[in-house]
Amino acid sequence: MEWLGLYNYWVVVVLMMVGFYIVIAQGNLVKKIVGLNIFQTSVFIFFISLAKLDGGTAPVYVEGITEYSNPLPHVLILTAIVVGVALTAMGLALVVRVHELYGSIEEDEIHEQDGKH
């Protein structure tokens, strides 16, 4: 039961694999970015859930509450999300440029246009 009890980690692992698979297997540049996002998000969830304590609340001093969740990972992930958004923006910007230059966002078609490299 303990294995199942930590179901949040299972979710993380599944999401991570799904994301990773998309990054590797998809030939469409936009879908790759989507995969990358899922991959990153799984790590975010991992951080957030590891900080969560059963029954814990936000670390604000309130009478009668003794257990708090660890706020630090949450703060870190706030930063990581910003980074992730920047990455997505960058990636999509590149895809737009690729579409302008090649008229396609399918990897194999692009490689075909460029010869072997």
Partner: peptide, 15 residues
């Protein structure tokens, strides 16, 4: 090709 190689770098770098 610079754009495409930047994109590839982005994907691998992010991983």
């Amino acid at each position: 090709r610079a754009v495409m190689s930047s994109y590839q770098y982005l994907v691998m770098g992010t991983v």
